[in-house]
Simulated assay, not measured.
Amino acid sequence: MIKKDDPVPPGPLMQFSGGAVHTLDSRDLFGVGRHIIVGVVGAFTPICGVTHLPEYVRLFETLMDFGNTDSISSVCVADPFVVSAWGKAMGCDGKIAMYADPVGAFTDQCGLAANYDSIGMGNRSQRYILIFRGGVVERLTVEPDPFQVDETSAARMIASST
């Protein structure tokens, strides 16, 4: 699993915008500056869509001021069309960049893959918060129970920094 001071791992991430799918390299996205990545189990799922991501949308301004953050992104092991539609439904436009990791390449490189066959979701991601600063890991928090939002909540992250 990726850890403090590790470099941004290589991995293609996809984004659907302007009517086209764009493939982006994680190192280009997160290699310079400070970036908060919200790793979610699945788009349009009850916990991710009711609790986890909405809190980051609601606290966006505070989070951007938190440690001079350059961007907040969400990464989801799903196709770029679903991730884009979910971001629009969650009010992420202009706030949180929505990236799809369709085959889990970035997620695997981070060591954050998880299997949810038992609930019909297959290979996905653990629930996590990953902060890159200057191209290296500043902080990684993985939720011990992917069906809860506690350690990876935006409010907890802000409170733990003060």
Rank of each mutant, 00 (worst) to 15 (best):
A105W: 00
M98L: 08
M64S: 02
S74Q: 08
Y56T: 11
V77D: 04
T51F: 02
M14N: 03
D25G: 04
D28K: 13
L112C: 02
A78Y: 06
N68K: 05
L59V: 00
V57Y: 09
K88G: 05
Q126I: 10
C92V: 09
A114E: 01
L13I: 02
K88S: 09
V103M: 10
Q15T: 12
I37E: 12
C48T: 14
P46W: 06
G67I: 05
V82Q: 04
E61I: 00
Y99F: 15
D28E: 13
I131L: 12
V82N: 03
P12Y: 05
T45Y: 11
D108M: 03
F60V: 03
F44N: 13
C48I: 12
F66A: 12
L24R: 09
A43T: 12
P12V: 10
D25H: 04
A100V: 04
V41T: 12
V38H: 08
V40S: 14
A89K: 10
M14A: 11
C76N: 11
A78L: 05
T62V: 10
R124P: 06
V32Y: 05
Y116F: 10
S26P: 11
Y128M: 14
A89D: 14
F60W: 09
F60L: 02
G19M: 06
V103I: 09
G18M: 06
N115Q: 00
F44Y: 15
Q15V: 14
I47V: 15
S71A: 14
Q15E: 15
W86L: 02
L53H: 05
V103N: 12
V142N: 02
V38F: 07
T51Y: 02
G39T: 14
Q109S: 15
S17D: 06
K95V: 01
Y128Q: 12
S125C: 13
V82T: 13
Q126M: 14
C92R: 08
I129V: 15
V82L: 10
L140A: 04
G49Q: 09
E55G: 15
S125T: 07
G120D: 03
G134T: 10
D108V: 05
E138I: 08
G94E: 04
G104M: 02
V32C: 07
D101T: 07
C48Q: 10
L140K: 09
L59M: 08
P46R: 06
C110A: 09
A78R: 07
A78Q: 14
C110M: 14
C48F: 11
C110Y: 03
H35C: 12
A105M: 02
L63M: 15
